[in-house]
């Protein structure tokens, strides 16, 4: 299990999807805001709560081909499955890697971002909690969609069409401060669903 996790993290590190890339992405998505909507601080606060979710969704969604597709296409998935016969182990390792690489940077730079957009301390904690529990569920969702679409023609748009409707509940509750318990519940539900469906998808494709 830990060897696999180590391997996935090393792979992410080598593929130069380092902390700086992801966090720069988040910062740039948010920097667009004042250019588009002006510098009115009340308005920016409202928009910040929404756009940060768009940034998170994009970061998770655009990179979803790295979860299973890359390993499937170059054959590494075969090797991994031979060495680690429990598919659940493989899937959990992918969850952790994807979350650490594409979500964790957001949480590290979130204090600075909230500062830039005049978010009060109380709101900061609520936003943080919402993003945290929401991002877990969103990672579970892209993982199973990635496992299901391994053999589909390689297009991120197809995957986006499948994923975004499933993201909507997270986005709805995510932008409402204080609804982190609901997000936690949604994440737990998607965890159960994702485990089954990802394992099913992987089993089909290695055959």
């Amino acid at each position: 299990m830990f060897a696999l996790l180590k391997r996935d993290l090393y792979l992410a590190l080598y593929s130069s999807s380092s902390f700086f890339y992801t966090s720069s992405f988040f910062i740039l998505i948010l920097i667009i805001l004042p250019f588009l909507f002006g510098t009115n601080d009340v308005q920016l606060q409202v928009l910040f709560k929404g756009i940060i979710w768009i940034g998170l969704s994009l970061s998770i969604l655009l990179t979803m081909e790295r979860i299973f597709n890359a390993d499937y296409e170059d054959g590494n998935l075969d090797v991994i499955i031979q060495r680690y016969p429990s598919l659940e182990t493989i899937i959990i390792s992918k969850y952790i890697t994807h979350w650490v690489v594409y979500c964790l940077p957001l949480f590290i730079i979130l204090p600075i971002l909230s500062f830039l957009f005049y978010v009060s301390l109380d709101n900061f904690f609520l936003i943080f909690l919402n993003l945290f529990f929401g991002s877990l569920g969103m990672v579970f969702i892209v993982t199973f969609v990635s496992a299901l679409t391994l053999g589909a023609k390689r297009t991120i748009f197809l995957k986006a069409i499948i994923v975004i409707p499933l993201f909507i509940p997270f986005l709805i509750f995510g932008t409402n401060l204080g609804s982190w318990p609901i997000l936690l519940a949604l994440s737990m539900m998607s965890f159960v669903l994702s485990m089954y469906v990802s394992a099913y998808g992987l089993r089909l494709y290695v055959e």
Partner: peptide, 24 residues
């Protein structure tokens, strides 16, 4: 099993690829 897929990451150096195998 060595199949027709070469299990190599195109964007990585040979050394890093070997490192990944070593971990697996």
């Amino acid at each position: 099993f060595v199949g027709q897929k070469n299990c190599l990451k195109d964007n990585l150096s040979v050394k890093n690829n070997l490192k990944l195998w070593e971990i697996i």
